[in-house]
Structure formats: C-alpha cells, structure tokens
Computed example of a mutant assay.
Amino acid sequence: MRTRIPVAAVALALVLAACEPRGADVRDARDADAVGTVTSVDDSAGVIAVGFAPDPGYEYFEGTVFDFAAQGALEGPDGEAVTGSDLSVGDRLEVWVEACAESFPVQCPDPVGRVLP
C-alpha cells in the first residue's frame, strides 16, 4: 500500500530544514546583506549606532544607521567583540539583517555586523 504525504507537509519540512539552528551565527551561515563604510559612531545610548555608507550594489541601505546591541552584535575580523570605541569613521563593515522597515532610510532592527580587516 502506498502512503501519500500531503504537499503542505513536504513544503513545511523544506522550510524548516532551511532555517538556521538556534544559536547559529548568521555571519557564518550566509553572505552579508550590506557591505559599506562607517560614517559615524555613537555609543552613548547603550547601543552602538553606526552611520553607514553602502558600497555599490547595496544602495538599499543608503543613509541607514545600524543600532548594534552593545554585546555580541558587532565583531572584529577575528571574531572578538567590538565596542563603539573600537570603531572609527572609515572602517569597513559587513552587516546582516532579518527584516527592514520600508522607509527612507530603511530601519533594520537587531542587525549583526563584522568589521572587515
């Protein structure tokens, strides 16, 4: 006897298989959503607010200020935690986001980033 598996069950299994495991770092799982240059740094409000000038091809993020959580959301090239005092205007960043508000500039909650060497 043949058993039929509903199409919805197969689709759900594929979606779940594509999801990252809990605790996985998106920086190791996929390419960055944005690459660009730091234009400003402000860490006075408990987050690291980084002004961002995107490289060509990432213009969607033009004028965006990424608010990185103070702990763990921003790392250096070797994976070490970065603080606001570690960043300078002109540093290069890769940034990962999950969803952004369609505004100008776009607003992307809970980004994670990596300072490029």
Rank of each mutant, 00 (worst) to 15 (best):
S103K: 06
V7D: 14
E94K: 09
G36N: 00
S40A: 14
A70D: 11
D91L: 12
G46V: 05
G113N: 00
R22E: 15
G79K: 02
G51V: 04
V65L: 09
A69N: 14
V106G: 06
G51L: 06
A73Y: 08
V41F: 04
A29H: 06
T64E: 07
V89P: 04
A53M: 07
T39R: 02
R22I: 13
A69R: 14
I48L: 05
A49S: 13
A99T: 08
G84R: 01
L16G: 13
V95I: 13
G113D: 01
G113C: 08
A8V: 06
S44I: 03
I5S: 07
P21I: 11
V26T: 08
A18H: 10
A9Y: 08
Q71L: 15
G84W: 02
E80I: 07
L87I: 08
L14M: 11
V112A: 07
V10R: 11
Y60Q: 08
L116I: 10
F52D: 02
R27K: 04
Q71Y: 15
T37P: 02
R2M: 07
Y58A: 07
A9L: 12
P54A: 04
A34E: 01
V10L: 14
A24M: 03
D31K: 13
D33E: 06
V15H: 06
T64S: 10
P105T: 00
V95N: 01
D31L: 13
A32F: 05
P21H: 09
E62N: 11
Y58F: 15
V26F: 00
R30G: 07
V97E: 02
T83C: 08
L16F: 14
D91W: 07
S88P: 05
A13Q: 06
A13N: 02
E20L: 15
V47Y: 06
G51K: 05
P54G: 05
A49Y: 06
V65T: 15
V112P: 00
D25M: 03
A70K: 13
W96K: 02
D33S: 11
R114G: 10
A81Q: 07
V95D: 03
R4Y: 12
F52N: 00
L16Y: 10
A45F: 14
V97C: 12
R4S: 12
G57L: 02
V112T: 12
T37W: 00
A18T: 11
V35D: 07
G63P: 01
G90F: 08
T3S: 11
G113K: 00
S88G: 13
T3D: 10
G23F: 00
Y60P: 03
W96T: 05
V47G: 01
L93E: 01
V115A: 09
R2C: 03
A9P: 03
S40H: 03
E80A: 15
A17N: 07
G36L: 00
F61L: 01
I48R: 00
C108S: 03
G36W: 00
S88D: 15
V26G: 01
A45L: 13
S40P: 04
A32K: 01
A99D: 12
P21F: 07
Q71R: 14
E94V: 10
P56Y: 06
